[in-house]
Design a protein around this nucleic acid. Structure first.
Lengths: 150, 150
DNA sequence: AATTTTGCGGTCTATATCATCCATGGCCGT
DNA sequence: ACGGCCATGGATGATATAGACCGCAAAATT
């Protein structure tokens, strides 16, 4: 990973459809060389996948919510992780330091839907205690990308 | 936005380099039609950009941290937002309900670097109180995508 | 009510661009 | 001087993209 690789990654991040010739012009490399570098970066996993960033509103996911979770004392922890991975609404789930055991990031269409999400968590017997934090606005929103199902 | 559009978005999410013919075969549409739909989705902003998902380790960003922030009482709130947008380490910044005013998501190379991040926040006079939460592991990690600078 | 009009979304074809492969050749470090 | 690594350039087959045309359905007109 040298400076040129980083530049290429930066160009692809901004627009993954730019032509090899175009990128090559910006880093003083032939299209073939750029292609070879992208192939390497992809093969070694530095680039995980080519994808698209989506508009949350257009996807019907305008409401961003963080939920702190303390698991129910006799909850199956690995079952919880599988559940989290399978739920489309759960964008992130982290095991964290501090008072709570998990921090979960979810996106739903509107605030009322949060209730259903929590109800499901409780129905699955995962929930001990929880605390819900709603994002009112996002100075830095973070990119919305569909979960990787591979 | 009909079902076909959603399918196309799903295919592109998994691999944005799949050919129009390939996608068309899966949704029973000609390559031209698929192209036209993608053009529409992009033009109306449903698809924000074509980009790449990166490996945090390869990028030297293995440590994921959430920081709860209560702004210093005479901090300039819009200056803080500009600061957050400019900082490369800050992936997300949300104005939230609850005890804290902001939730900030950052990525750094290693835990010691968190200190420098907080020190900078304090030096800028933004920081009132804060609480730092480190992700130990991530059952659902969320995609790492470079910030959009357009 | 029947007919025309309009507009959207599709297919097909042609063309220019593009990614990809391979053989060649330079450069650097040992 | 030699070997490995990386870039180059040209050939080729695939691909995106534009444009002309078609069909259908809803709206408007008579």
């Amino acid at each position: 990973m040298d400076d040129i690789d980083r530049k290429i990654i930066s160009f692809l991040s901004a627009d993954a459809r730019r032509s090899l010739a175009d990128i090559g012009g910006n880093v003083n490399l032939s299209p073939s060389s750029v292609n070879e570098r992208i192939r390497r970066l992809t093969a070694q996993g530095t680039i995980r996948r080519f994808t698209v960033e989506l508009d949350p509103a257009a996807m019907g996911l305008e409401t961003l919510v963080y939920v702190w979770i303390a698991l129910h004392e006799d909850a199956d922890e690995s079952a919880f992780r599988r559940y989290a991975a399978a739920q489309a609404a759960i964008l992130e789930c982290h095991h964290v330091t501090g008072r709570w055991s998990y921090l979960v990031k979810i996106r739903v269409g509107s605030p009322p839907e949060i209730e259903g999400f929590l109800a499901d968590l409780k129905a699955q017997k995962f929930l001990g205690r929880s605390e819900t934090v709603i994002a009112l606005s996002s100075p830095v929103a973070g990119a919305l990308v569909q979960k990787d199902n591979s």
